[in-house]
Write a protein that binds this DNA or RNA. Sequence first.
DNA 1: GATGAAGATATGTCCTGACAAACACTTGAC
DNA 2: GTCAAGTGTTTGTCAGGACATATCTTCATC
Lengths: 245, 245
Amino acid sequence: MPQPLRIELDRTSPVPLYHQVAQAIQAAIDDGRLAPGELLENEISLANRLGISRPTARQALRELVDKGQLVRKRGAGTHVAPARIRRPVDLTSLYDDLTKSGQKPTTEVLEHTTVPAPVDVAHALDIPEGTEVVMIRRLRRADGDPIALMTNYLPIAIAPSREDLEADGLYDCLRGRGVKPRIAKQRIGARTASAAEARMLDEAPRAALLTMERTAFDEAGAAVEFGAHIYRASRYSFETTMFAG
Amino acid sequence: MPQPLRIELDRTSPVPLYHQVAQAIQAAIDDGRLAPGELLENEISLANRLGISRPTARQALRELVDKGQLVRKRGAGTHVAPARIRRPVDLTSLYDDLTKSGQKPTTEVLEHTTVPAPVDVAHALDIPEGTEVVMIRRLRRADGDPIALMTNYLPIAIAPSREDLEADGLYDCLRGRGVKPRIAKQRIGARTASAAEARMLDEAPRAALLTMERTAFDEAGAAVEFGAHIYRASRYSFETTMFAG
DNA sequence: GATGAAGATATGTCCTGACAAACACTTGAC
DNA sequence: GTCAAGTGTTTGTCAGGACATATCTTCATC
């Protein structure tokens, strides 16, 4: 049974109750009174103890889940979120980066099928819409934890097999087939997770996600893959060093 | 009075009601039946028409707000979100990029004060903790819309004045003082907004934010600024082209 | 025509209540 | 020691309700 956190609420304050609770919990996380991984008091107990309603308590907790500070699971409770992953913005694959940083990446290929290229994929790969391409969906884990959900489209002629992809990263597979990605256009953004994505990534339904869309080209300038990846923002960031041109 | 969107709910489905509603609205946005900026039906009307409770309808709308698809304001209603901003990952300032893309950036300097450097700032600027630095907080707008909230720390000797910053971007101000940023280390991440940040940026309280922390150095290798920026993910993404090296 | 007040509209905040479903733990059988 | 079933715990989903607050529109006055 977790130790109840001391939280003072001020009902005369213009700050909403749910936000006061969220800030108190955040402060406890920041100053170490709540450690990564630690189990929090359950919703009903917290609400009763603070004299607020359960929906209000849930809203406070949800705010912190959305900021990546807490992780919640039905039946399991609410925990302080674990540590993070940082990644250089380079033309590498996540697989390479994880391996180099001593983490053990594994890949679960969720889908590996041939589809007619949708309009956005066709545009990115510079092929006629409807051309058959290979669509790959993979869940990447690091040390057992889901990290990223990646959807990639490749021309059929160069697409690795499902077996290859479960053993290696995509770019190593391509290199093994003589395809050398040399240039990539990449767009990094963010949004909140859908319910399905959240479940796949072991995140709360509204957690922030880092998104990355990338089109890679070989030395001849031919598009070799178009990928749309989503990363857990609670565990992930991109790092880069730039030089003024 | 907005046209009610046709939404079919399946109460026998394992998909939660709120999610079915969210998906239906998302589909209408995707296929153009709901245009950017368009006003949606109000919460109570939507709930009554669909035979669901108002909290359920609100949860559906919140899910879309969190994905950046909708914008909600008390008293004003729920609108489809407006268009987006894309930005290259280069050593430029947001001011430069907006100007180049034909948008009219304005800067509101919220704070311009001297503070003892906190530990993270001291570390980034490679100065002793507690050294006095200039802390600047600015709200950047493009064509009147808030886009970014930026906090920067600079050594006192090179820090531009409040007046300079309201007229120009930070990097132009620095160049005007003979300081040339040449290298920067940058980290891009994401999280959800706090209530205060959301208000500043005219976003929903749980909207996804793109975050960027940057330390810039001059040609001698001295740190000239450390900045922590947050951008509206609904309006913003980073773009980059990379070369395998 | 401009301005301010009042009213209407719509979302934000908070409450009580109930049932479903996922997870963890305990117990008993093998 | 392992495994399956049962139980308890906890969050997820949904409902109904009320009041507060921000925004917009309308109307009256100057």
